[in-house]
Simulated assay, not measured.
Amino acid sequence: MKIPHDVTAWAQFLAFSPYTVRLGIEAVAAEDGGCVLALPYAPEFIGDPDSGVLHGGAVTALIDTAFGFAVFFRIQAFRPMATLDMRIDYLRPARPGMKIHTRARCYKLTPELAFVRGCSYEDDVEDPFASCVGVFMFTVGQPAFGKAAKVP
């Protein structure tokens, strides 16, 4: 099955989760093995009222969601998975009042794991405020490729 790269088609998947709906996460771009998602700036997601900087939890939610979608676009199938590890290196605070984006790419697959890297930025991918890497574990079902695993 080939997953369409039409953003309006796959953005519907974001609408299935109350979590992504509440955060307002938006589909921006998709390609084989990668995607860009965005999080609009909202006062309820501010972590520091004095500066207006978004809370790290909101940023992490965007990154984690973008990483999961990048895996989805790489394996071209629906498979349950869990975030096994994620590292976010903040290079600077995100600018208050601006929509933030995460570009994610799944660069390596094994039958049990998916490896993803990306960055978060406001309006210029060449000026990221965070660099991130993650590992996802497939939780049930068939491996992403190769010989089928036996499920008890």
Rank of each mutant, 00 (worst) to 15 (best):
I75C: 06
Q76E: 15
R79M: 04
P80F: 09
L91A: 05
P93R: 03
L84H: 11
Q76I: 01
D89K: 03
I75G: 04
A70C: 06
D85I: 00
D85H: 15
Q76N: 13
F78I: 00
A70D: 13
Y90S: 01
F67H: 08
G56Q: 11
L62W: 14
A58T: 07
L84N: 12
D85Q: 15
M86A: 03
G57Q: 10
I75M: 08
G68F: 09
V71S: 06
A82S: 15
A77H: 11
F73A: 05
V59Q: 15
G68L: 08
A61W: 13
I75E: 09
D64E: 14
R74T: 04
L54T: 01
A66S: 13
I88F: 10
H55I: 01
Y90Q: 00
P80C: 02
T60Q: 14
G57N: 10
G56S: 05
I88A: 03
A77S: 11
F78R: 05
M86K: 04
G52M: 04
H55V: 02
V59T: 12
L62S: 11
F72P: 02
V53K: 01
R74M: 11
G68W: 09
I75W: 04
F72I: 04
G56W: 11
D48A: 03
D85W: 01
L54I: 05
D85L: 01
D85T: 07
F67V: 00
V71P: 04
T65A: 11
R79F: 02
R87V: 04
L84F: 14
R79V: 02
V71R: 02
L91M: 10
Y90C: 00
D89Q: 09
A66D: 11
F67E: 15
G57S: 14
Q76Y: 06
H55F: 04
G56L: 07
D64I: 07
T65M: 10
P80A: 12
A66I: 02
V53F: 06
A70F: 12
I63C: 08
A70P: 07
M81T: 03
F69T: 07
R79T: 00
R79Q: 13
I63Y: 05
I75R: 12
L62K: 06
A82F: 06
G56P: 07
